[in-house]
Every structure is written in C-alpha cells, then in structure tokens.
Amino acid sequence: MIKARGLTKRYGTVKAVDALSFDVRPGAVTGFLGPNGSGKTTTMRLMLGLDRPDGGTVTIGGRRYRDLAWPLREVGALLDARAFHPGRSARAHLAALAAANSIPSRRVDEVLRQVGLDTARDRRAGKFSLGMGQRLGLAAALLGDPGILLLDEPVNGLDPEGVRWIRDLMKSLAAEGRTVFVSSHLISEMAQTAEHVIVIGGGRLLADTTVGELAARSASLEDAFLELTSGSAEFRAAHRGPA
C-alpha cells in the first residue's frame, strides 16, 4: 500500500506536484495518468526518495522509502530515463544492484531471462536500443521480487510483442496480490491494463476512480480523460484549421 498525503514539490516557482493525496492498493494495476508535464515522473521520484517533497509525505507500507530495510526487495522501480552506465554490461549492472540488497546472484540470470535479455547480458548496455534499455530497467525492477512495482511509462520503446508482454506481466503481478502503479500518457494502453486510475493535471489530483467509472463519464475513456484534463494540460499543440 502506497499512501501520498498532501504531497507538494516546487521547482523554482513552478509547483510540479501540488497537495497530492491518494492511496495505491495491492492486488490491482493502478494507472497513473496525466498530460505531459503534469507531475507524474516527479511524483514517482518523490515516492522513491530521489527528490525531497516541499510538503506532505509519501509512504510505502507505512514507511518512507529511505527507511526501507531492503528497498529492492520491497519496491521495484522503472523510471522513464535510463539509469545504467553505458560502459557496463546488463549483467554487471544488475549484479551490483543485487549485491546492495543481498539478493542472490541467480536472480540476475532469472530476470535477464524473464525480460528476454539473456543473450545480450554481457554486451555493454550503451549499445542497447531504447527497447532493450527499457527491458534492462524492468529487469532491475523485478530483481528483488518486490511486492510493490512503480513503473514510469514502461511501454516506451517496446515493440508490440514487448507491449503485450508487459501488459500481461503487470496483470499477473497484480493477480498475485502485488501493488502495481504504472504511469502512462497512453489512454488506450491503460484501458487494457489498469483497473483503477489516478488522474493528475498541473500537479493536482483530478480523479481517483475505477477505469469503468471514468470511461462511463463520456463516450470513451479517452474522451473522459481529455475532458478531465482540458483545463490543466501544460503543453498543447495549437489547433489548426477552422475552429
């Protein structure tokens, strides 16, 4: 169970996250939706203790991330940007992380097989394609067999097969009773994966509901999302042609 209470983060004068409160429950895939720049990644970074909040708290099983006894065994995280050194092999990257949390080294080979990187495990990760880098990030998230998964835009760069694979993986992890919190800006993807959704815009909570309930508000989930976020989209293309 993840609990955010009054979570606030400012970068200079911009409030990236503004008094955000929500719970993420185990046993379900919870989608975290919002337009570009709405504060999804910042919220994830606050959850992981990478950034300090200016106000409020976020706890995981009642504790702050930095107070977790074996962080990777409790929380697995995939952030949107690459988090590995280009000169290190996939295997070495995972072996280092495993060592930090006393995770047996056989898990490294297991997760490499699980994400389909076993044949590329000794190659330098700097040569990886976007999709392979994403798979390595997922392997790191799964390494400690954690009860909670935080995935920021996990389908980025994946091929269709990979997209389906991760969709099935998230569902099966949730079915095992794990907490799966996944951010995306792809509404159609979330419609197929998530049962619950938390929608933010401009750093504020816009909705915290089931996918079914949100979709029922309009003609489709996408329409409902666009109506909900219309007042808060940070970056929007100018509409062309006759208005």
Binding site: A69, R73, E110, G116, L117, T119, G144, D145, D168, S172
Partner: peptide, 27 residues
C-alpha cells in the same frame, strides 16, 4: 535489437510469494 524473445508472459521467475523475509537491513 529487440528481437530477443520476451520471457514467458506472466510468469515471474521467482516463487509467486514475495521474497523470503530477510532479517536486519542493508548496510
């Protein structure tokens, strides 16, 4: 090179129960 086949969908490589509880904490 994403041609590497993904693992068996939906099969976590570890026992399905969360990892065995470890005493103490990392240090």
């Amino acid at each position: 090179m994403t041609s590497a086949a993904p693992g068996i969908p939906g099969t976590p490589a570890a026992p399905s129960a969360p990892a065995e509880r470890l005493r103490g904490h990392y240090g």
